[in-house]
Design a protein around this nucleic acid. Structure first.
Lengths: 335, 335
DNA sequence: TCCTGGAACGTTACCGCTAACATCGCGGCA
DNA sequence: TGCCGCGATGTTAGCGGTAACGTTCCAGGA
């Protein structure tokens, strides 16, 4: 007894209805110019009538290309990454690729697990949201010989393509901007403490040290970032360093939360305390006062990731390269 | 000349190394208790050594099950849906399923396109974020005979499983709460105007009409929701209806934006104007004043969607059903 | 008239895995 | 001793496509 077929409409069904072989139907779909006009129309009609949906699994198995790409982000709720995702998605969709999203929860072990999973799904490439991976993950990626884009921060040793911005320089730049604005007792508040936050912190220290200022006003926690946490961290800092005149928050969520806490305490921003965030999310331009921040080109990063990946997928030879997408300090009312 | 193999390690490679047939290796992976202990260990070792990654496409093609489920959300940056997503993801991962995310941009046409795409990928089920679909989408889903969960709002006519909350009742409840708090000139501000927002608006009208209050203070726009838009809409409303004493915003983003606008205008909240939002996002509990809102059980919706879907996937017969997950009015400082 | 070449379509053999059924070997029991 | 039953493993035949190569047919040039 033959294996029961799935019941789905297949190429064979179309072929029988039209009276040709299934290869011809397949060709009509993939290389329309290679079948005669009349036949193509009849095939298209049959596809329409029977509601044929190609089986990508079968196609991928046979051709070795799945026309899909994995995008791994640390968190799906963080709009930083949804901007990147939009850029990636748009670029790749145009080229006929489907983007499969996975979220690592900021864990490189989970990233490794997802790389394994998506390799099993036969993706044709990866867009990662970091440059740090487990050894095993690196080995898997290398052995798979797939194009890989590492995004967000820059690295000296990209696996393949690297698209991001100099997080340390950005941290330094906002530090310098605060100093230039006249602040002298500048704090740093950071949550999660992932690699990028550490880089921003290092940049902040660079700036303060160079100006001969103290870098002691630094409040960090491994807890995940949130608005409320921004308030809590600011409270702790105000307690420890009552003389603080400005705070650079490692991201906009913390900065907004800190701002809300200032409002709660009737602390004038920027009169009594200046605040700066990082990323340039929508909220920084909506609060009162609006928040000074470092605007990161997230969408552009996603788009560049897509375009470079497509070049690789189309056969451009593998040759490690970095794309520095820059950043922009935007001074607003909070400083 | 035979087709070039992909170069990947396959079951056959493992089988040869261990000296058994590939079916046995396949069995060792899928039904470990059916192969002898010693052999299983040798197979596991070979898999480890050769870094074997199963080809899911081939497995899915052969077995007819892909162990993946599609989750379609309107927007990926909206944290409402990332909460749902987390619930779905967690539940399904435990059962061995991979969740593939697609975002429709609030368009049912795009939803239709994605349903088509994911059917081509051979997913075993769908979680949709709405109960409204194109006719063609409905036909595709019905013909595919896959389990489908429609989430977020309730419907009288579910395709299969329906998990959500009564959006209209929630709108009505917040309206009643504002009335109970003594407000009489209550406005509504809504963006995007998707189906759920329309239901909330209808509920708000229900409450006001029943109390004999005017429902004229209603400002809506099809533009997508954002913090800034909340400020803009509020400004417009204050201009048109200077006597307004409370506003129900169709979601928390607008409410927060409206709050920021009040701060900008030095308008006391709730003294001069009360504000209420919808969803219960983190920000509502962080601002100053904190925001009254309708807390929706997004995570629970996701989890229930996962558990009911799993039941179906495990063979439980199809029988349309609704799960009302409720909501909670949380009164905070803004009212 | 014959040959040639290319457009249009067909045949074959896989891709890597699994369902279904077949086989083998061995202990236990009549 | 011979047969049965069952656990452990193997054989076969696909799943639904596509790459590579083959065939057919007809126009056009020598």
């Amino acid at each position: 007894m033959p294996r029961r077929s799935s019941g789905r409409v297949t190429l064979q069904d179309i072929a029988e209805r039209v009276g040709v072989s299934k290869v011809t139907v397949s060709r009509a779909l993939r290389e329309p110019q290679r079948v005669s006009e009349t036949l193509r129309l009849r095939i298209e009609e049959a596809i329409e009538v029977l509601d044929y949906i190609p089986n990508r699994q079968a196609g991928a198995l046979s051709s070795g290309r799945s026309l899909s790409v994995a995008l791994l982000v640390p968190s799906i709720s963080n709009s930083v990454f949804s901007d990147v995702q939009r850029g990636v998605d748009e670029g790749l969709r145009e080229a006929g690729y489907q983007v499969l999203i996975g979220h690592t929860g900021y864990s490189i072990l989970e990233e490794e697990r997802l790389i394994d999973t998506f390799l099993a799904y036969g993706v044709d490439g990866f867009v990662l949201s970091s440059t740090r991976h487990t050894d095993h993950a690196q080995r898997l990626l290398t052995r798979a010989r797939l194009p890989v884009v590492e995004t967000m921060e820059l690295t000296e040793t990209p696996l393949d393509i690297n698209v991001g911005l100099d997080q340390r320089a950005a941290g330094r730049a906002i530090g310098e901007a605060l100093i230039a604005a006249g602040y002298r007792r500048i704090g740093f508040c950071g949550a999660r403490l992932d690699y990028r936050v550490q880089l921003r912190l290092a940049g902040w220290e660079d700036a303060l040290k160079e100006a001969g200022l103290s870098t002691q006003r630094c409040q960090t926690t491994p807890r995940p970032s949130s608005y409320r946490l921004g308030g809590e961290l600011l409270s702790a800092m105000l307690e420890r360093w009552p003389d603080m005149d400005a705070v650079f928050c490692c991201n906009d969520d913390l900065a907004a939360g800190a701002l809300f806490e200032c409002q709660r305490r009737r602390l004038d921003v920027p009169g009594q305390l200046a605040l700066a965030g990082f990323n340039g999310l929508d909220i920084t331009d909506a609060t009162w006062p609006t928040l000074t921040t470092v605007v990161t080109p997230r969408r552009a990063i996603g788009e560049r990731a897509a375009s470079t990946l497509i070049a690789r997928l189309r056969g451009q030879p593998r040759e490690p390269c970095r794309h520095d997408m820059g950043f922009e300090i935007v001074l607003r009312q909070s400083t």
